[in-house]
Amino acid sequence: MSLKYQTGVRFNHHLGPQETLSFMGEGVGAALFAIAFFTGQWLLAGPGILFVIGAVVALLGHLGNPQRAWRAVTRVGTSWVSRGTLFIGVFAGLAILSVAAGYLGMIALQGPLALAALVVAVPVMAYAGMLLRSMRAIRLWRGPFVPLAFVAHSLATALVLAWAVMPLLAGAAAAPWLQPAAMVALVASALVSVLHLLRAERSVGVRASFERMFSGDLKTSFLVGACVCGIVVPLVVMAVLSAFSGGAVTVLMLAVALCRLYGDFAYRNAVVLAGAYEPVMPDWPMRSFTPPAAPTCSTAGQH
């Protein structure tokens, strides 16, 4: 009996780390597929598809009735959950078919399929942000910057991952543009995230969200996880590592990729968990009716 009904600020408690992991998985997976398309390294498409499938599994785990999940595509006209489900389903299907076509040697078929998957990959990356944006009640999530930030973070994470594993897949000289692209994407994702926070309306709920992110229980996760591990460490290490090569460097690159993955998760998790509802009665204190504790007896009616 921990639930308190409050008249003051209340934080989102329906979406948590599991859903955040899913949001990250589908975004990074779609971005990895896009990078595979542009680099021609189709081995990258495999992890991309696995990321998306993992995200779908995590989403199914979030549902109270996963056996009815097919119904989720029946309201694409109004619901971003419906649209996202459709995009992810179509993307996964096309991506798997394009990889299979390449594996089976049907190169003429692989190109159009991959191009179609690439087109759908964009809304898959944006879906989580658009979903949050559609939840009007939480003002931190309103506006165009959450979807943009989610897309930017997905691209940045996927580029860092691709940069880290590319030497193992195709040698150190393959796709030299990945490193500058990853660094630009990291800076862009940081800028969009800062813009999101700066442009958010200063309501009571949003102020409570900021307090939780910058000085509350999400402080370490947001400042150390999202900012330091997710942006600063990858940027610095990537800049330094460009002058070196060797086995230790490869290990360091993989470590940076893991660091970035954690940072991406920490950022999204902070934004999701810090989402706050506005107080229904702003001049009322937080104190409010608390449901009574359940009796401790094991059987009703016993004395």
């Binding site: 989102n12 329906h14 979406l15 979030h62 549902l63 109270g64 009735n65 996963p66 009815r68 999940a69 119904r71 989720a72 619901s79 959950v81 979903l131 559609s134 939840m135 009007r136 009640a137 939480i138 509802y277 506005e278 229904v280």
Partner: peptide, 12 residues
């Protein structure tokens, strides 16, 4: 209802 809780999240 599939229990996705989108409605619960969007109710202010």
């Amino acid at each position: 209802c599939i229990g996705c809780r989108s409605c619960a999240t969007s109710c202010p």
